[in-house]
Simulated scan of single mutants.
Amino acid sequence: MTLISRLLSAVLAITLAACGPAASPPAAARVAQEGHPALWKLADEDTTIYLFGTIHVLPAGYEWRDAAIDAAIDRSDALVIEAVIDRTDPAKAFALLSRLGTTPGLPPLLDRVPADKREQLAALIARSRLPQPFLDGMETWSGALMLMPVLMSDLGLDGGMGVEEQLEARFKADGRPIEGLETAEQQLRVLDGLPEDVQRQFLVAMIDDGTAQKAEFDAMLAAWSRGDEAAIAATFDKDVRVSPELRAALLVRRNAAWADWLKARLDRPGTIFVAVGAGHLAGPASVVRMLEAKGLKVERVQ
């Protein structure tokens, strides 16, 4: 997938809650390839923290759990995810996105991309069925987010089939608590704080390489399902050359904050299951490597 499809998984849940995925035919069920998603463990004498890398949006019917993951889930007293999103109230999510991402007097959204990209952007807008004046009033980052469900539809993805949502349902059914490392507003403010030129890179990336997105997503999904840390990290390393600022904002700085939180969480007894996007746990700037740099032992369970 392109930069946007990979890195924006961090804020995809709030986007889909706000505007809903574009209509599309039901996706065919796909079964995970041979192998198992990666799972790590951070522990001391009285605390165990399982670290699980996720894919935030999956094809319908995709099987990803295995015995090791189920055992870790069953042992955990609580679930921790990137952010807890209220998917039952789309109006609330939309109000948040509008409050942070709307500014009067902006140039038309089409004028914020190079001339040779405008025809593609216009086609994307038409497929979204969103009014052009509405999008023109949005900041570049938020206008891009509003168009993202169209790309998810192209990939045959159902926004309600992500790993986190399945985990939330399981913990809720058992009455176990769920908390977020961030709030939805904190996630959106990461994008809201980007310089305008980076926001425009973000928008252009959404309309580039459309023909390659499906194959790249399938390759990333296969790497995740077999726990291939190097292959997952490689997709993010490729994106550094596109927008290092966006990668730093969405990945590196957040990883550092989460590593600090996890280290501090070791001071509280118990067992928790922490599930964040797989790209946050792979590569040299990952949460795992940052924890190891703090002198902590992180064990690969599978």
Rank of each mutant, 00 (worst) to 15 (best):
L3A: 00
A10H: 07
A23Q: 14
S24A: 15
S24K: 13
A29F: 09
E34S: 14
E34G: 15
E34W: 13
E34A: 15
H36K: 13
L42T: 08
E45A: 15
L51E: 09
G61L: 03
E63Y: 03
A71Q: 14
D74C: 07
D77K: 00
D77L: 07
R87P: 04
R87M: 10
F94I: 02
L96W: 12
P104L: 01
P104N: 01
R112F: 06
R112Y: 06
V113S: 05
P114F: 11
P114I: 00
A115H: 03
D116V: 09
K117G: 09
R118V: 06
E119T: 04
A123D: 12
S128V: 00
F134C: 02
M138T: 00
A144E: 01
M146D: 00
S153K: 03
D154P: 04
D158M: 02
E168N: 08
E168C: 15
F171R: 08
R176T: 11
P177M: 02
T183W: 11
V198K: 06
A205D: 14
I207S: 04
I207W: 06
D208H: 13
K214V: 10
A223K: 07
G227E: 12
P244L: 05
P244G: 09
P244Q: 09
L251V: 15
R254L: 05
D260L: 14
A264H: 13
A282K: 02
A282D: 04
G283K: 00
P284T: 03
S286I: 04
M290G: 03
E292P: 00
E292R: 03
A293V: 06
L296P: 07
R300A: 07
